[in-house]
Design a protein around this nucleic acid. Structure first.
Lengths: 214, 214
DNA sequence: CTCTGTCGTTACCGCAAGTAACATGCTAGT
DNA sequence: ACTAGCATGTTACTTGCGGTAACGACAGAG
């Protein structure tokens, strides 16, 4: 029969594919985001055309690579976000989950989010960062969905939820990125500060009277 | 004297530099972010090595290019942010200024923020996006400073202001990016929704009772 | 023993960044 | 006037990437 053989071959192909992805992962984690196709192929013990046969082009390989991490992160976030707890607690847990993830594997994070950066020969690297948008967009849409499901926002709730979803994700991302670079405080403090911001502390705070320039 | 001559030459050099930057601007606006050095040189009516003499490398040219737009945007934002008005009014004005800017020149915006994206031959383009970070960081720091100057946040105000500054800028950026792509509502609505979010409407909203999954 | 299809290779193309070496014109010192 | 210096411009090259074409083994089917 052809089918069984086909299945075998497909299985084998899938295994190879996974091996290649793991090799690519290793290279990206070692060499940073500017890993070349040659380097990845070498790490996998094969040569370039095989990579292209499996993934089409560089973007395809990257997309596959990013999807693994993205999916993992998103499922963690979903768990924190869907927990049966108070809203503020859930928000803090989700922020903390995200920050813990980028803190634990900053290499992966920078690969997903930041393009090239450390170009030793100033040549082009992985055109990552192209694809950071999908991750942020997916997170924004997921969050929007959860907000719309669980929070009563009155009319136009769907649109409002989407704005907020993307906005909050952007806030988390930018603050996390800055925090990861400067480490100006502990993770818990950052989480608290951001949650405070979302909880309207900016609106509640009084004007400063003795500020400079007044 | 050498000085006058030097001054003349330096002036001429500065003029050339500005001309080159304008040519680069035109090319980037026309061809998108993946403009090549050759193309820019051709647009300027000269050849590659001159670009390299003026800007060192591609990144240098980009940095110079980005600085122009970044400075312009930042000064607009500062004006809106420093106005002598109610806080919410100022926040809305600033959000609107930013969104109006990216709406008016999306090409510039995408050049500043997004890497490559439309690679027709899938080759590398400008390694933009590397440099989007500086812009976001600068905006975050500026905002933090204004917050710290004008809002009474109690102890630890400086750190809190910085977290909020970067967080709010990230919110604005992500929401704006999403909005620019999908255009799901008017600019005014977006501004209102984001200001509402910052004004604690998320905390104030009640739980939804009839949501799916409960 | 050949035919077919997958897995793998080498060797190449095209293109962009960046550089070296050469040409030209203006200003200045003698 | 002649030449030294210096900025400005050029052509022609190197390097290194993404991506591909064309060829070589090795499995099973007739």
């Amino acid at each position: 029969m052809n089918t069984t053989q086909r299945t075998d071959q497909q299985r084998s192909a899938d295994r190879r594919r996974r091996e290649l992805l793991e090799a690519a992962d290793r290279v990206v984690l070692r060499d940073g985001p500017q890993a070349s196709m040659n380097a990845i192929a070498a790490e996998a013990g094969i040569t370039k055309p095989i990579l292209y046969r499996h993934f089409g082009d560089k973007g395809g390989l990257y997309a596959a690579l990013a999807k693994r991490h993205t999916d993992a992160l998103l499922s963690s976030l979903r768990a924190a976000l869907d927990a049966p707890a108070e809203r503020r607690e859930r928000v803090e847990a989700t922020l903390d989950t995200y920050l813990a993830a980028i803190e634990a594997l900053p290499q992966v994070y920078r690969f997903l989010m930041h393009p090239v950066e450390g170009g030793q020969t100033a040549d082009q690297g992985f055109d990552t960062g192209n694809h950071s948008v999908p991750l942020l967009r997916r997170m924004g849409e997921e969050l929007a969905q959860v907000i719309e499901e669980r929070v009563d926002l009155g009319p136009n709730s769907q649109q409002l939820a989407r704005v907020w979803g993307h906005g909050i994700v952007g806030m988390m991302h930018a603050a996390g990125d800055w925090w990861l670079g400067e480490r100006p405080c502990s993770r818990a403090e950052l989480v608290r500060s951001l949650a405070d911001l979302l909880w309207g502390r900016l609106a509640a705070a009084g004007d400063k009277v003795g500020g400079p320039g007044f």
